[in-house]
Design a protein around this nucleic acid. Structure first.
Lengths: 196, 196, 196, 196
DNA sequence: CATGAATGAGAGTTCATTCAT
DNA sequence: GATGAATGAACTCTCATTCAT
C-alpha cells in the first residue's frame, strides 16, 4: 500500500515552494517547472495535488491568509480590552514571522492579479472585510460609530500601504516602526474622538 | 513623403494602448498583439519604436510618473505656504484625472514587477524618493526634522495604501474622501507636534 | 487467503470496461485511468494483468472477434444446407447482442488503428480471412468458384459497410434490414449464377 | 510589405502534410510537430493559419470531401442519362487519384473520430446525405421510389465497405474491380426492379 | 516608415508506466 | 494480489521577436 497521509504534507511543501518561487522570480515567472523543482518534485505533481497551477496559486493565497488568521486568534486569546485587541490586530499584521520580504512580495503579486481573477478577488475581499470588521468592532466600543469607521479606514489604508512599500523595498522593513506608526496614528485619532 | 514628427504621437498612442490593455486584461495577459491592436497598429511597431515589450512597459510607467509630476508642478505654481504645498502634493495623488481604475490597476501591476525588474525598481525609487522628499521638505518648515520625517512616512504609507485599495476595488474610489483622510491625519499629527 | 481463479474474471471486467470507455469517450480519450475507474479498480491493475495499455486493447479486439466466432459456431450447429450456413454467417454479423453501438463504435476505433499496429493488423486479417473463407466455402457449393469469390467479396464489403455506417450513426441500426439487404443481394447474385 | 496571397497556399500545404502524416503515423500520432515538419514549417504556423490542431483536422476532412465533390461535378457535366450519372457517382468514389491508401486511411481515421466530434459528425453527415441523395435521385428515374431507396442503401453500404477494406489493406485496391462490383450489383438490382 | 508572416522556445497539462507498500 | 502516489516525456498552444517586403 502506498504511503497514506502524504496529501497535506505534499500540499504544504508545494505551497512553500510557490511562495519561495514568487519571491525569487516574481509572479509572472513563477512556472510549474520552477515550483516543482523548488519543492524537489516532478512537474506532474501539481496537477495531481491541485488540479492545475491556478488552483495552487489560490491555495497559496488562502494559506497566507490563514497564517495571518491563526496568528490573530492566538494573540486575541491573550487580549482583554478593546485597545489590547486593536494592538493584537496591528501586531498580527506586522508579525516578525509573517512580515517578511517573501510574504510581502507574494502579497503584492497576488494583489496585482486580483482585478483579473475571480477566485483571488473573492479571497482578497475576505481579507479586506475581515480586517475592516475586526477594527471597526473594537473601535466602536471606544468612540462613535462614524468616528470608528473613519479610524478603521485610515488604519487599514496605512497597514496595506506599509505592506506595499515593504514589498517594494529590498531588505526587511522595521516591524516595530510599522506597529508604532499605525498604533500611534490610532491613538492620535482616538484622543481627538468623543468617547462612546 | 514621410510624416515628420510622428514619433512622439505614435509613442503616446502606444503608451495609452498599454495602460488600456493592462486595465482590461491584466499585466500577465498584456501581449504585444493586444497592445498593438488596441492602438490600431501592427505588432512590429512596438519593436520599431521601443525596441521591445519591456521598454514599452518601462516607458509607460515613466509616463504615469511624469503625469503625476506635471500635475504637481501645475498645482505648486499656485501654492504659497507650506500647508498649501502639502495639500498640493496630496491633491496631486488623488487627482480626478489620474486617480482612475485604469491608472491604479496599472500601478498595481507595475508594483508587482518592481522587485524583479531593475529598470522598474529604479523608476519606482524615483517616485518614492520624490514623494518623501517633497513631503519632508514642507513638513520640516512646520515642525522638527524628526517629527516631519515621521509624518511624512505616515502620509506616504497612507497614500500608497489608498492607491492599492483603489486598484483592488471595482468601481472608482472617492477622491474627496481620500484627500480628506490623508490631510486629516496630517493635521492631527501637526497639532500634536512642536512648532519649528 | 488469496482468491483463486480471479484472473479470468478481472480480465473480462477490464475488457468490458474498455469497450464501455471507447464507446463513451472515443479511442483517443480512452485512458488507463478511465478504464480502471469504469472497472472499479486501480490504475495499476492494467499493467498487472495485461502488461500495458496496448495489450489490453489487443485483448479487447480479440475478445470481440471471439464473441462473433462463438455466436457463429452456435448458429452453425443448427444449419444443414449451404444456404442455411450462409444465413448463419450473415445473422452472426448482425446479431442483436453484438451489433450494438458500443460494439460497432469500438470496431471503428480498432479499424482506424489497424494500419499502424502490427498486432491489430494481424487480428483483423484473421477476421477478414475467416469471413471470406466461410462465405467462399459455402458459396462454392452453389455456383462456380469464380462466381462464388465475386459474391463473397460483394457480401463482405456490404457487411463491413453496414458496420461502418452503424458506428457512424447515432442510434441503433435495424438488424433485420441489414440482414435482408445482404441476403437479398446474395440471392440476387445466386439467381444469376450458373449452378455448380 | 509581406507576401500577400500566401494564405491559401500555406493552408493547402498544411492540409497535404496532414493527410501525409495521418497516413504515415496514424491519427492518434498525428501531432502538430509532425505535421509542421512534414510541411517544412514551424509548429506555430498551424495555430496561425487554422487556430489550432482540431480546426486543421476539420479543414482536412472538408478538403477531402471537396475533392470528391469537384471530381463528381466534372464527371456529371459529361453525363446525359441517369445510368451515366450513376456511373459517374461510383467512378468518383473510386477515382484513381482519390482512392489511394493515403486517402482511404485518412477517411478511416476521421470516421473513428466522428462519434466524438461534433464538427466531424456534421461534415460526415453531409457526405452521407449527399451520396444517398445523388444515388436516390437518379435511381428514382429508373424504378419505383421504394426500390430506388433500397438500391441506394445497398450501393452506399458497398461503397463505404470497399473504402474501409481498402484502408485496412496494405497496397492499393483495384479501382476497376471496385467499380465493377458496385455497378454490377446495381444492374442486378435494376434488372429485377419494376420500371418507373 | 510600417507591416504581419513566420519562427521556435517555453508554457501548462495529460497520461502510461513504475514501484514501495 | 492490489494499490495509487509519483514520475517525466510528449503534447498543444502562446507569444516576443525578426525580417523581407
Amino acid at each position: 500500500m502506498p504511503k497514506v497521509g502524504m496529501q497535506p504534507v505534499r500540499r504544504r511543501q508545494l505551497i512553500d515552494a510557490t511562495i519561495e518561487t514568487i519571491h525569487r522570480h516574481g509572479f509572472a515567472d513563477t512556472t510549474i517547472a520552477r515550483i516543482s523543482k523548488a519543492a524537489g518534485m516532478s512537474s506532474g505533481i501539481i496537477s495531481h495535488y491541485f488540479g492545475g497551477k491556478n488552483a495552487l496559486l489560490e491555495a497559496t493565497m488562502r494559506f497566507l491568509m490563514q497564517e495571518l488568521r491563526n496568528d490573530y486568534m492566538a494573540r486575541l486569546a491573550q487580549s482583554r480590552t478593546p485597545v489590547d485587541r486593536l494592538e493584537a490586530i496591528v501586531n498580527t499584521n506586522f508579525d516578525e514571522e509573517q512580515f517578511t520580504p517573501q510574504v510581502t512580495v507574494a502579497w503584492l503579486s497576488f494583489w496585482a492579479q486580483v482585478p483579473f481573477s475571480e477566485p483571488l478577488r473573492r479571497l482578497n475581499n475576505i481579507y479586506f472585510q475581515r480586517l475592516a470588521s475586526n477594527l471597526r468592532h473594537e473601535l466602536r466600543q471606544l468612540t462613535t460609530d462614524q468616528r470608528a469607521d473613519e479610524i478603521s479606514a485610515a488604519m487599514a489604508a496605512m497597514i496595506d500601504g506599509i505592506w506595499v512599500r515593504s514589498g517594494l523595498s529590498s531588505g526587511r522593513t522595521d516591524v516595530a516602526a510599522a506597529r508604532k506608526m499605525v498604533l500611534g496614528t490610532m491613538h492620535l485619532y482616538l484622543a481627538q474622538s468623543p468617547a462612546r
